[in-house]
Amino acid sequence: MTKDECFYLGQIVSKFSFKGELQIKLDTDEPELYKNLESIFVDYRNKLIPFFVEKSNLQKSSLLRVKLEEVNEEADADDLLKRNVYLPLTKLPKLGGNKFYYHEVIGYKAVDATHGEIGTIKFINDQTMQALFFIDFNDKEIIIPVNDRFIQKVDKDEHIIYFQTPEGLIDMYLED
């Protein structure tokens, strides 16, 4: 399993007991979806190592207390502290309507209400204050903010996102 096949779930932030229990700070709006995990992948020295979950319990709002198989002592737990935790992409909950995960719309066609087809979504940069679609159109790059006001429809069957962008936004990329 590689990180490309997984999504970031959270980070192991502390030990809970002297018997190897750990607490994972979940990075999700819906922590209750992950309270009964069978297994997790821990990023250990740049490799994803699978661990089976013996038991888990949601603590507070986003802390998941877990007991992992073969982690039975404090030293074992210490070795896993501050490590990132991942799950396979197949474990992501399905989203309805115009909601989507960034990774799933890569390669979708982008269609603007004014300009028609404006290219293919190459990637989404979510490392900026405003997440951005990067669209490839005839060797030009069009950048559109990821904003619900600009997205008319997400057609997951046809792999198309329909946009209604502000006047002039697309034009500024198409001018020579």
Rank of each mutant, 00 (worst) to 15 (best):
N84D: 13
F51G: 02
F163A: 00
I170Y: 03
C6K: 01
N98I: 07
E70C: 13
L92C: 06
V146R: 02
A110Y: 01
T165K: 03
D176I: 12
D76Y: 04
P88W: 05
Q164F: 13
L169G: 03
E21S: 08
D79R: 15
G97D: 03
D76S: 07
I161R: 01
H115Y: 05
L22H: 02
Y8C: 09
T90W: 10
L80T: 08
A110R: 01
A131M: 09
I40E: 00
H115M: 10
G107I: 01
L92I: 08
V146M: 04
Q130Y: 14
L33I: 12
K19F: 08
Q127E: 13
G20S: 05
E5F: 10
L89P: 04
V154L: 02
A110L: 02
D79Y: 15
L64Q: 02
H159Q: 11
I12A: 02
F134V: 09
K55A: 07
F52P: 06
F51S: 04
L132F: 13
A113I: 11
K35C: 08
E69V: 13
N57S: 14
K82I: 12
Y86H: 05
I118C: 01
A77E: 02
E175R: 14
L92P: 04
D27S: 10
Q59K: 13
H115L: 09
D136L: 04
K91Q: 15
G10A: 06
I40R: 00
L87C: 08
A110S: 04
Y8G: 08
G107D: 10
E74D: 14
L95F: 03
E54G: 10
